[in-house]
Amino acid sequence: MTPVRSWLRFALVALSLVGPAPTGCSREQAAPVEEPAWPEGLPRPQDAAEAERLEQAGTRWTNRQARQLYLERVAGIAAEVEAWQKQQIPAEEQARRAYQVRHDARMTARAMMSDPAELAALQERDRAKYGDPDGPTFEWLLERARGKGLEGDAAYLSIVESAQRTDASVNQSLGF
């Protein structure tokens, strides 16, 4: 990974965690939040299953930590996509892989949540919005791309692109 990409990856994660209010809203601005470093010794689960095992053994994360880990995983997708492109992996396969990495990171973050009521609320909302309690499926994203008039590789590449995007306000602040 080039130094520019490394800096960009760090910036995206750091800015995403500050959580600024959207533009055009109240002029009140939250005081800048000092982002605490990841606590030494606190596990970073590789997947949802590991998160559940660790939680049963007594490990607890804040939602902020869960989101921090998620954003770090999403920030790593770009480097993987770059490698797939060099390997000339077909667009559909890239899309399925990119989707899976992001979805797995989402499930890991959800498994790190301590409050079952909060998780249930997210699942209920996702079921209503996406037809699935775990968020958008690959097929849902493909249908959305086709609904925007994209076909074939263009539809798959839009999924690859969206899998790498984080909070819209962060992207806007970085000029994307």
Binding site: A21, C25, S26
Partner: peptide
Amino acid sequence: ADALRFDDW
């Protein structure tokens, strides 16, 4: 008007 976003209650 959106005022604040946060993760933990």
